[in-house]
Amino acid sequence: MCLGVPGRIIEIEKTMAKVDVAGFLREISLDLCPDVSVGEYVLIHTGFAIQKVDEEDAKETLELLKKMVQAI
């Protein structure tokens, strides 16, 4: 029920956006996540963007994980 999937914004029109989820295109609402621009990734839940995906934080988490694993 609380599924969320990242998608890339490819078009914005007022409060709606077209997003690309692995080639699958979907119209979503930006009402809950208005400050986004084309090219950015958002987390999609039941037809709404509910948060921007932070690329920097994603990179940081992955770097951290890789370091932890290398340190074994």
């Binding site: 989820v21 692995a22 080639g23 999609i44």
Partner: peptide, 13 residues
């Protein structure tokens, strides 16, 4: 599995 099929599957559970 094709990317797009995975995409919808993830989205719709």
């Amino acid at each position: 599995i094709r990317e797009s099929v995975r995409g919808i599957s993830e989205l719709l559970g």
